[in-house]
Amino acid sequence: MKLPRIDIDIGKIAHNIQQLKKLYGSKGIQITGVTKVIGGNPLIASILVKKDIKILADSRIENIVKMRKAGVQAKYLLLRTPALSQVEEVVIYTDISLNSELIVLKELSKYAIRNQIIHKVVLMVELGDLREGIMPLEINNTVKEVLLLKGLSLIGIGSNLACFGGIGPDASKMSKLSSIAIHLEKKFKIKLTIISGGNSANYHWFKSSKNVGRINNLRLGESIFLGREALCRKPIPKLFTDIFTLVVEVIESKIKPSKPYGKVFQNANGKIKKFKKKGLMNRAILAIGGQDVDVSGITPRQNIDILGGSSDHIVIDNTKLNLKVGDTVEFDLNYSALLRVLNSSYITKNTINFNECKSVLQSS
């Protein structure tokens, strides 16, 4: 099979979904499956749907179109707040969108009316991470305006934490979101069906909370596909953390100096690197680079050390293993690395363990 490739264990994905639904469902929280990391892969998306994930969320319209055309039957949510330039596509291809700008909501209304569609919206509330979101003091005015827009249905509010600013979704933040939901329902005499508290970073809040308040939805990607929470990147009990294996080929293996020689300037990544002088070293080059993977986000399963990389190459210390040209190296990936790999057209996607997947699906 063509290299480099990423092996994807479908059976382990099905298992993780089953366990997460059971975990969060114990306190009345439903899961929205985030598909951006898998590039909208229809086969993987269909596993989420078969495991009774009702809503699939993606930040790219192109991925949503891909899944729709492949016949994946789900409600689709646009994860990134819409750009003005794409509002008609949002209305046509998605069922729900997360929003924070009134000017965009007005355009969504215009195109929803034009296409005779009722488009559902969730308003994002700023709780401190300082990415998208309406400031709490402004939420009343925004809701008042949205309720007047034809073609739109306000179905909920949400928050995003632990992304841009790394601010954790603690009890105080979630209580604030619950209070805002209760306030809006009472003030405007409406019913909000989705109160989306966040993402895979909400695990510790969930585990430590006896009462989750009005929070009834989380948008999960990292927990499903990497089996861990997104605050400290610790594994979640009973989940697989080795679903994905990056397999890369050795294309050069030679004895060379450990330190580059000559006048030093910036390297291909715009950095001036420092190297320790260790004498001659067995060095190998792998056929993958920064164009396809976040090199800082991969961990070798074999006994090698990554020395660095450029756009198309990774250089490793090959002293301990003495790998030859044509040998392969396997890596685990963090979320950033996985996102780039699965969205690269140059890496073969190889799905495995269909039979195991079927047994997991049948047991649910």
Rank of each mutant, 00 (worst) to 15 (best):
residue 114 R to L: 11
residue 49 V to C: 00
residue 147 L to V: 13
residue 362 Q to C: 09
residue 253 S to C: 10
residue 58 D to K: 13
residue 264 V to H: 02
residue 21 K to I: 12
residue 290 G to Y: 08
residue 308 G to S: 11
residue 4 P to F: 10
residue 243 I to R: 15
residue 291 Q to E: 11
residue 98 L to H: 03
residue 295 V to D: 03
residue 19 Q to E: 10
residue 3 L to M: 11
residue 314 I to N: 12
residue 126 E to Q: 02
residue 177 L to W: 00
residue 2 K to S: 10
residue 180 I to Y: 07
residue 140 N to Y: 09
residue 345 S to H: 04
residue 342 L to F: 07
residue 80 R to M: 03
residue 360 V to I: 15
residue 6 I to L: 05
residue 58 D to V: 08
residue 111 Y to H: 11
residue 212 V to L: 00
residue 26 S to L: 02
residue 68 R to A: 05
residue 120 K to F: 15
residue 313 H to S: 08
residue 275 F to V: 00
residue 46 S to V: 03
residue 277 K to D: 04
residue 300 P to H: 09
residue 327 D to M: 10
residue 93 Y to P: 05
residue 136 P to A: 13
residue 32 T to W: 13
residue 45 A to D: 06
residue 315 V to C: 04
residue 9 D to E: 14
residue 295 V to W: 05
residue 160 N to V: 12
residue 279 G to I: 00
residue 282 N to I: 10
residue 240 F to T: 15
residue 153 S to W: 06
residue 218 L to T: 03
residue 306 I to Q: 06
residue 334 N to F: 07
residue 106 K to V: 06
residue 151 G to R: 07
residue 100 S to E: 13
residue 351 T to C: 15
residue 165 G to W: 08
residue 159 S to I: 08
residue 79 L to H: 06
residue 139 I to A: 03
residue 66 K to V: 01
residue 121 V to K: 04
residue 206 F to N: 09
residue 12 K to D: 14
residue 169 P to D: 05
residue 40 G to A: 08
residue 235 P to L: 15
residue 171 A to Q: 09
residue 113 I to M: 10
residue 207 K to I: 13
residue 338 L to E: 01
residue 41 N to A: 03
residue 329 V to R: 02
residue 267 N to K: 00
residue 350 N to T: 07
residue 277 K to M: 05
residue 104 V to C: 04
residue 100 S to M: 05
residue 2 K to H: 12
residue 78 L to S: 01
residue 231 L to T: 09
residue 96 I to M: 04
residue 100 S to D: 14
residue 8 I to R: 11
residue 87 V to Q: 06
residue 178 S to V: 07
residue 273 K to D: 00
residue 206 F to A: 05
residue 180 I to Q: 00
residue 203 Y to L: 04
residue 78 L to F: 09
residue 129 D to K: 01
residue 20 L to G: 00
residue 31 I to D: 12
residue 334 N to A: 02
residue 20 L to F: 05
residue 204 H to V: 15
residue 195 I to C: 07
residue 178 S to R: 01
residue 64 I to D: 01
residue 204 H to I: 15
residue 148 L to H: 15
residue 234 K to L: 15
residue 156 G to N: 08
residue 135 M to K: 08
residue 182 I to M: 12
residue 203 Y to W: 13
residue 324 K to S: 02
residue 125 V to W: 02
residue 118 I to C: 12
residue 132 E to V: 00
residue 229 E to H: 09
residue 257 P to I: 07
